[in-house]
């Protein structure tokens, strides 16, 4: 990857105490949502993060956005350490990172018109003139494929796909460098998903945006990402280019995840061998010793319970955290 690193996470850990209610009560445990994640996001490229519910995808995204402060480790934006900044300084950094959410209904205020929604972030820009807001909002609406004349309409008057376009217009309003999209298409119908994915790709090409794209749908990530990170219980188990991760799959979890995806072809579906994982993801309060995937892994051996496998290149051309990769 030739382009430069724009956002970097180094050994990021985010733990949430549980059971602590009130000042004097003791915490009874810790949810290890993100437990030592390092990754780089390159300018103009897309990092896709995949994994099951509860694997820490969304927490990681919120730490990268600095909506949450990490418990340990650091986050760097263009070389600048933003791990513990706050106040004015944080607000300034935020104009470079924006978020697109999963649920376009919940993330838009029903009592605000589209014009108000999209223009809100503009108010926090330096040298802001209220007079130019309307023109800018209509320009943004045009960019994301909305009719600028619908400026005064409310979110409920739009369809799901159009609402997601409003969320995207709001995110790009302050000319950010990075957009973190947390499951941006999973609430939409397939034909609409394709429209939104195409829009995101067009905006990336036009403005040189970098994306962190979180999804549980592996085919969406394959389509859009330059780099794919597979997460399991707060850790990255495999990371690399889509060709590597999907082509030379090394981690048994990635394998199982991919074989679980239904194939839209009945002839292939009937003949392929499927690895069905038993059980559910273990609790992140008490993750298994050693390799966290060992309790569901078809290849687990004694070593896996003792030693935690490190994320290393084990001869596949991309890093894998497994003692016995394929």
């Amino acid at each position: 990857m030739s382009s430069e690193v724009i956002l970097e996470a180094i050994d990021v850990i985010k733990h949430f105490p549980t059971g602590a209610r009130g000042l004097l009560q003791r915490t009874t445990g810790t949810v290890k949502a993100v437990d030592g994640v390092s990754l780089q996001i390159y300018t103009g490229q897309t990092l896709g993060i995949v994994g099951e519910s509860g694997c820490g995808k969304s927490t990681l995204a919120r730490v990268l956005m600095r909506l949450l402060e990490p418990s340990a480790g650091s986050v760097k934006l263009q070389g600048e350490d933003i791990t513990h900044i706050h106040g004015q300084h944080l607000r300034k950094v935020r104009s470079q990172m924006q978020m697109v959410f999963q649920d376009p209904i919940a993330s838009l205020n029903p009592r605000h018109s589209v014009g108000e929604i999209i223009s809100t972030p503009l108010k926090f820009l330096e040298g802001h003139h209220a007079g130019s807001d309307k023109a800018r909002v209509q320009e943004l609406m045009n960019l994301v494929g909305l009719n600028p004349e619908h400026y005064n309409r409310y979110p409920h008057e739009f369809s799901g796909g159009q609402r997601q376009r409003i969320g995207i217009a709001r995110a790009i309003a302050v000319n950010p460098k990075i957009i973190v999209a947390d499951e941006p298409v999973s609430a939409l119908d397939v034909s609409i998903q394709a429209q939104i994915l195409n829009l995101l790709e067009k905006l990336q090409a036009d403005f040189g945006l970098s994306y962190v794209f979180i999804a549980h749908d592996l085919s969406v990530v394959r389509h859009i990402a330059d780099q794919v990170a597979v997460m399991y219980l707060g850790k990255i188990v495999e990371i690399g280019s889509p060709e590597d991760v999907y082509g030379i799959t090394a981690h048994p979890y990635t394998k199982a995840l991919m074989s679980a995806v239904p194939v839209a072809n009945p002839r292939i579906a009937a003949n392929r061998h499927r690895i069905v994982l038993t059980g559910d993801v273990p609790s992140p309060v008490n993750p298994p010793s050693g390799c966290r995937f060992r309790t569901r892994c078809p290849k687990a051996q004694e070593l896996c319970a003792q030693d935690e496998p490190l994320l290393l290149d084990r001869g596949h051309g991309h890093p894998v955290a497994c003692h016995f990769p394929d």
Binding site: V190, S191, Q193, S219, V220, V261
Partner: peptide, 30 residues
């Protein structure tokens, strides 16, 4: 799946992404 014989079915199938081969570039949309 072999012969979608309605333009809508055909459109739906075009919008589906595949896991097997990289399909960078514009997805078909309805």
């Amino acid at each position: 799946f072999d012969n979608p014989s309605h333009p809508y079915t055909r459109g739906l199938m075009g919008a589906v992404r595949s896991l097997d081969h990289s399909s960078r570039g514009s997805l078909h949309t309805i």
